[in-house]
Simulated assay, not measured.
Amino acid sequence: MKNTYFTPGPAELYPTIHQHLQRAMDEQIGSISHRSKQFRDLYRFMDEQLRTLLAIPDTHGIFITGSASEVWERMLLNCVEHESFHLVNGSFSQKFYDYANALHKHAHVLEKPFGEGFDAAEIQVPDYAEVVCVTHNETSSGVQMKPSEIHKLKRKNPKKLFCVDIVSSAPYPDLDFSLIDSTFFSVQKAFGMPAGMGIWIASEACLAKAERLQKNDTLTIGAHHTLPALWKHYKDFETPATPNVLYIYLLGKIAEDFNKIGIDTIRRQTEEKARMLYKFIESSDAYEPFVKQERHRSQTVIVATTQKPSSDVIAIGKAANMLVGSGYGKFKESQIRIANFPAVSPEQVNELINQLNKIY
């Protein structure tokens, strides 16, 4: 019997990926040149499907990276001359901040305890911060910042570049790209693909900043995958270096599948499944929601504190071929994390609930 993966990444593969992968093998997609018309057509198709899915305007480019983590470094090198500002409330937002310090940027931070969320009204962006770094969905703690709150914060700080991490939530968040300058995700979570590729979406304002910094002899914006180099090749739907051509093909196909369903339907289904899970967790004596404020609870990575060791809970799921994630870091043995991505159905979520209910 096959496993169902409720792990928050790598996660359950999207059901159609098998047929897309077979067609890619039949058409020898993995062997084509990244300087060929066939590749340019694949990249263009992926670009068109993502633009439709996420409502990305022509002012933003869609670039290929090796991972989402790579974008932390690319964004900081290309768009921060001196100062960045980071909202930190979990391990991955912390890593974005750590990257800024490692690159010798003057990094400001507003920090909240693990499991607590941010609202725009409580945030004061430092005057000289050039980029505001926000994590929409903190994979480690199951906290989301509502897009409406991110938009409010940008409107209060219109001259700042805003970079939003949507690694474990895309395509769920309804971001207004007239306000968001940069965002990024990886393919092994909600897009239901194996790990191995990141997507960086960046605006012309980010490009202009990178081009200005590139002229400064006292700075470096990097030597590999600089934003000006990415954008130069992107104009022709090419890449500076050989990319993961197979994954570009697969992402275009899965984004097309999502568009056939409709993004509104995907968002509604995500929220319905999240309600099922939170209702169960709140009503059970064996679990409780880790994130106390309902408005800050993730819809895509549900985190529950377990009364028994989380390894016991995970073992119950595994015995039924249903795998959930452990807690992150110091919460490894006291929490579980449940991925609520499009690849899993309401029926599978209901079966998982039935299994988790067997802890007693």
Results as ranks from 00 to 15, higher is better:
326 S>E: 09
168 S>N: 09
243 P>S: 09
45 F>T: 15
209 K>E: 08
13 L>E: 10
231 W>R: 11
304 A>L: 00
307 Q>T: 15
90 G>W: 09
320 A>M: 05
158 P>E: 01
34 H>T: 11
214 Q>F: 08
28 Q>P: 00
50 L>E: 00
294 E>T: 13
302 I>M: 05
31 S>A: 10
278 Y>M: 06
70 E>N: 14
332 K>L: 03
297 R>K: 02
132 V>C: 08
176 D>L: 05
77 L>F: 03
67 S>V: 09
46 M>T: 10
45 F>M: 06
160 K>E: 03
139 T>M: 14
192 G>F: 01
243 P>E: 05
122 E>V: 02
66 G>W: 04
6 F>K: 04
187 V>K: 00
44 R>W: 08
62 I>V: 15
37 K>P: 08
287 Y>K: 10
52 T>W: 02
19 Q>H: 12
271 E>H: 04
109 V>R: 15
257 D>I: 11
4 T>A: 00
169 S>Y: 09
73 E>A: 05
315 A>H: 06
339 A>D: 00
29 I>P: 00
60 H>T: 01
297 R>F: 00
62 I>D: 09
260 K>T: 12
82 H>D: 13
359 I>E: 04
301 V>P: 01
251 L>I: 15
353 I>H: 04
75 M>I: 13
189 K>Y: 07
2 K>P: 15
143 V>L: 04
73 E>Q: 14
230 L>N: 07
31 S>G: 11
233 H>Q: 13
95 K>R: 15
141 S>G: 00
23 R>P: 02
360 Y>S: 14
262 G>A: 02
55 A>S: 12
90 G>V: 12
86 H>L: 11
155 R>H: 12
346 P>Y: 04
319 A>V: 02
316 I>T: 12
76 L>S: 08
144 Q>I: 11
152 K>Y: 07
4 T>E: 04
158 P>I: 01
98 D>Q: 14
1 M>T: 10
354 N>V: 01
2 K>E: 06
43 Y>V: 00
296 H>Y: 13
261 I>S: 06
355 Q>A: 05
104 H>T: 10
139 T>C: 13
11 A>F: 06
242 T>F: 06
182 S>I: 08
111 E>V: 08
118 F>S: 03
23 R>S: 13
209 K>M: 12
356 L>C: 00
360 Y>F: 10
222 G>Q: 05
47 D>T: 15
284 S>D: 04
265 T>M: 04
237 F>V: 05
109 V>I: 15
112 K>E: 07
213 L>P: 09
142 G>D: 09
